[in-house]
């Protein structure tokens, strides 16, 4: 299972990456999550500019027989969304840590970042749950 060490994670299987400029956090779902979902057929994205709280459901990902909420790992404002997913939802399956990203948040509380799981913690959490 690919769980990149440079990312942070949530229990609900989102990954988060701080952009180089430190101004925004990119969010997607983990390889484990996309495998569980199987073929993604639709992604519903939040409007840019929306204020979100950590733990709030802000996007939806659907497969043929399931739908899951995607939660904001940190509080802030939606800075960008991956509009490519509207036409090619399969990117979530094909490249979950890259082109399959969902949205970017401009964080409002820096300490929340520190509370996210490391790759090691997430790996352990997965082992416990499976």
């Amino acid at each position: 299972m690919n769980i990149p060490a440079d990312l942070r994670y949530t229990k609900s299987h989102e990954w988060a990456r701080r952009e180089a400029d430190q101004k925004s956090v990119v969010v997607g779902i983990t390889e484990h999550a996309q495998e569980e979902l199987k073929d993604v057929v639709f992604v519903e994205l939040p409007p840019v500019g929306k204020a979100v709280k950590a733990g709030e459901a802000v996007a939806v990902v659907e497969s043929v027989k399931a739908a899951f909420d995607i939660y904001a790992p940190v509080s802030g404002t939606i800075a960008a969304v991956n509009t490519q997913l509207e036409r090619q939802p399969q990117l979530v399956n094909q490249d979950s840590y890259g082109q399959g990203w969902f949205f970017k948040i401009t964080p409002s509380q820096s300490k929340e970042w520190e509370q996210l799981m490391s790759s090691g913690d997430y790996t352990k959490a997965l082992q416990v749950s499976t």
């Binding site: 057929v41 639709f42 659907e62 497969s63 043929v64 027989k65 399931a66 739908a67």
Partner: peptide, 10 residues
Amino acid sequence: TLQAREQHIR
């Protein structure tokens, strides 16, 4: 199709 909108899933 689009059953993920429906009550038995959502």
